[in-house]
Structure formats: structure tokens, C-alpha cells
Design a protein around this nucleic acid. Structure first.
Length: 344
DNA sequence: AACAGTCTCAACCGCCTCGAG
DNA sequence: TCTCGAGGCGGTTGAGACTGT
């Protein structure tokens, strides 16, 4: 037993990778495949630590990595999974095909975390910040300096909140706001069917919560299914322990399933169901909303350890979509006041 | 144009888990 | 059973880009 340590050695280069180094690494991996990272630097002619090579490959050079702006659906998935899983970036990234854990982590830290704080939501607990009397107004909180003009300018100067500064609730609710420099993140229009929370029975509250998420669930399901069904299709009926070994299937193989034959379900669910709710309402619990959704198998809590029955999942989704779009006795008031105040 | 402050994200660091020896 | 290295993961850093004055 005389293994040599991975990252000791003089003359190892650090810092940004050059294109030349990238070429060497790509070329080597194309020829020999991944793995054996300790030996790769030497064999590929790189003065880098094996660990550094692995990271460079996994986070940047790998051909199927998706880069660039996160979609609305991806944002929703990150937020929801973070609420239930915490900083488990690798777990979250598994639900986002072609995204890396590092990228998800960076996006959370630089965008989503701030946005939640701005809207008075504690990014750790995903519950309204206790000290925040008005969630629609940026407040001083952890990592947030209200003397920072940029925080105030964003809304006071623009006269409206950009989608990125919208409350999570609103961005989940088909709200469309004036947005000159960005493609709207949701194709839905500002619904005429705006609903308020009603403090009634727990069932009503659950329905409220579900309805709140309904407009985005379609998108989320589509996106999540990409990741989940790829794996379930691949796995089933494989035992769980085989799962991780077989999960490297390209999503393209299942694109027809994800995007055509079942797109109608997602479309149904994206339809004109929207509402707002009052974050001041101490009973609102985003984590609970997630639990509710998870309990109905709309999202898989951790596909890496779960084998999924595809038919069962589709039954659930179909059932839920029918439930969600059946608003014949939609029990909530319409109310645009909240966004009228904050978006105009 | 120059400078300062802020933001972004690639890359590093250190810890943890797992498995080989 | 114990030790140690590889690989994986989450937290943090800092260089470069961007923005405001």
C-alpha cells in the first residue's frame, strides 16, 4: 500500500486554465475516458493537480454541460429543492439536466439568495423573515445593507420590479411585469383570476398553496421529468444500487417523451391559474408547500436513491393536473391590490 | 478617461465518505 | 480492523468584468 498523494508536488500550476491546457485535458479524456484523475495530469502533460483536472472537466469542459442564464423553471426547481434539501448542490443539480453543482451553487449565492432576502424570505428556512413587516419592500437582513443604493435603485428607479426581484410567490403565479431588457420568464399573462389567501380550513390552505404553485408546476414537472424520468426509464426495473451506474444517459434520448406526448399535461397545469398571497401571513410556509408537493410525488425528493415507477408518476401528474385545472369552484377571491401596489 | 465600488463565477481549499490494501 | 488515498462535496476566495461617479 504505497499510494502517492494526489495534490502534492512542486511546480503545480494554479489559477485560471489556459485554452492550451483545456485542449490537452479534453484530448486526453476523449482518448482515455474519465477516471484515474491522479494520473491524468502527468499523462496529459499538464502541470495540474488531478483534483483540479477533475473539477475543470466536470464543471467546464464536459461536452454536455449547459451554460448561461438559468430558466424560470430551473430557478423554481432550485428554490424548491433548496427549501427541502438545503445546500445539497449535487442533489439539486441532479434535477437540472446538464447543470453542475458548482453552477447551481454559484447561481444560488449570487442571484436567488439575494432575491429571497429582498422579498423578505429567509434563504435558509424559506420562511418569511420575522423582522420583515413588508415583504414587498427590500429590508435589511443578513448580508443585506440597506444603505446600499443598488438595492433601492432597482425598484425605485425602474418604477417596477423586475422579474428577478419579484416575490417568489409572484414569479410562481404567471405574473408578467414590464420588462424591457429580458424575455419574460413566464409565457402566461397576468391572470384575471388573482386569488388571495383565505384563512379557512387546512384543506383550503393546502389548496391555496397548491394553486399558488400550479402555474409553475407544469414547467417544473416538465423540467423535473427530464431528470427524473431519464433515470426512472433507465433504471426501471433495475435495483437502486445500479442506478448511479446507469444515470449518465443523455436526456435527448427521452426528449420525445418529455416534450411531446405528455406536454399537454404540463400545458394544462400552466394555464390560467394564478394567485397571490400575503407573505405577512405567518401561516404561510413555503417548506410546507414543498412537503405537500413532494407527498404527491410530483417531484422526486432524491432520484439518486429512489426508483420511480413511470406509470405511477404519470397517473399522479395526470390526476393533479386535472385537479388543478378544475377551477369550477375555485374558492378564492380575486385581488390585484398587492401587485398593483408593488409593480406599478 | 480614470477611479472606486460591486458583482460574477471559475477555481481552490479542506473536510467527508468510501473502498482498496 | 485500521490506514490511507481517490473522489465527491460544500464553502470560500479572488481575478476580471461591470457599473456608477
Amino acid at each position: 500500500m504505497s499510494r502517492k498523494p494526489c495534490c502534492v508536488g512542486e511546480g503545480l500550476k494554479k489559477g485560471a486554465w489556459t485554452t492550451e491546457e483545456d485542449k490537452k485535458l479534453i484530448s486526453y479524456i476523449h482518448e482515455h475516458g474519465e477516471g484515474g484523475w491522479r494520473d491524468i495530469p502527468q499523462k496529459a502533460g499538464l502541470k495540474r493537480c488531478g483534483k483540479s483536472c477533475r473539477l475543470r472537466w466536470a464543471n467546464y469542459l464536459k461536452p454536455d454541460i449547459k451554460r448561461g442564464e438559468f430558466s424560470y423553471e430551473e430557478e423554481q426547481i432550485i428554490i424548491m429543492l433548496h427549501a427541502s434539501r438545503g445546500n445539497k448542490w449535487s442533489v439539486i443539480a441532479r434535477h437540472l439536466p446538464r447543470r453542475t453543482d458548482n453552477e447551481v451553487k454559484n447561481y444560488w449565492n449570487t442571484h436567488l439568495k439575494k432575491r429571497l432576502i429582498d422579498q423578505g424570505i429567509d434563504p435558509l428556512t424559506h420562511k418569511p423573515l420575522a423582522s420583515n413587516p413588508n415583504p414587498a419592500t427590500p429590508t435589511t437582513s443578513e448580508g443585506q445593507d440597506d444603505s446600499n443604493p443598488s438595492n433601492l435603485d432597482e425598484q425605485s428607479q425602474s418604477g417596477s420590479m423586475s422579474p428577478k426581484s419579484l416575490p417568489i410567490s409572484s414569479s410562481s403565479c404567471n405574473l408578467q411585469v414590464n420588462n424591457s431588457d429580458e424575455t419574460p420568464r413566464n409565457n402566461g399573462s397576468l391572470s384575471s383570476k388573482k386569488c388571495c389567501f383565505k384563512k379557512s380550513s387546512s384543506t383550503s390552505k393546502l389548496l391555496n398553496k397548491v394553486a399558488t404553485k400550479a402555474s409553475s408546476i407544469g414547467n417544473m414537472v416538465s423540467a423535473s421529468m427530464e431528470g427524473s424520468l431519464i433515470r426512472s426509464t433507465t433504471l426501471s426495473p433495475c435495483p437502486n444500487d445500479v442506478f448511479s451506474e446507469t444515470s449518465q444517459v443523455q436526456m435527448d434520448e427521452f426528449a420525445p417523451f418529455s416534450y411531446s406526448s405528455d406536454q399537454h399535461i404540463a400545458d394544462y397545469m400552466k394555464e390560467d391559474i394564478s394567485m397571490d398571497f400575503d407573505l405577512n401571513n405567518s401561516e404561510y410556509d413555503f417548506s410546507q408547500t414543498l412537503e405537500d408537493i413532494y407527498n404527491h410525488d410530483l417531484l422526486l425528493s432524491d432520484v439518486s436513491s429512489t426508483s420511480v415507477d413511470e406509470d405511477n408518476m404519470m397517473q399522479n401528474i395526470t390526476g393533479w393536473s386535472n385537479f388543478l385545472v378544475d377551477d369550477s369552484d375555485f374558492p378564492y377571491d380575486t385581488n390585484l391590490d398587492f401587485y398593483d401596489k408593488n409593480l406599478v
